[in-house]
Amino acid sequence: MKVCLVKYPAGNVKSVEIALKRLGITPVLTSDPDTLNKADKLILPGVGHAGELSRFLEAENLAELIRGFKNPVLGICLGMQIMCSASEEGNARGLGIVDGNVLKFKGELKVPQIGWNRIYNLKGPLFKNVTESAYVYYVNSFYLPVVNCTSGFSHYGTEFSAAVERDNFFGVQFHPEKSGPEGYRIITNFLSL
């Protein structure tokens, strides 16, 4: 199975790479459209800035490629946010796969949200054998409210999408590669789609 990690500047993909290797997969890290097009699984990892990522995907002609991708795609953190319609972060235009706008956490909260939070109302194949209300690790200043495609939610000042699913597209706001055994289960579930 060929798993591609979409490579973009300022995205730290090392931890995702390490997690995949522990599961016996050596991912290809690339932004080359031909290579990405042949992948069995595509992962959009995510640390960085939505505005910059959006511009990068447009400039490298990757936005269209991802939107039209037929095999399973997993967006992690910013990788999930970029699948949405738009983001408040740098007024970024998203890929529009998931209908919803990404907002900044407001109010009396420590931002970024850094730490372990629970996930609820888990739906779909990504959460097979994952415990309802399990803790997962989050690092985010921006969030997607609960929308039609939400397949799990968490609470941080407000309810927000922990995960989304639409057709072959999956997204998680948390970092499954840093979420202990439950996180590894989620990655394994994605790989076996």
Binding site: K14, R22, E177, K178
Partner: peptide
């Protein structure tokens, strides 16, 4: 160490 850690490091 990073290779055996499944939580933030």
């Amino acid at each position: 160490v990073a290779g055996v850690v499944d939580v933030p490091f």
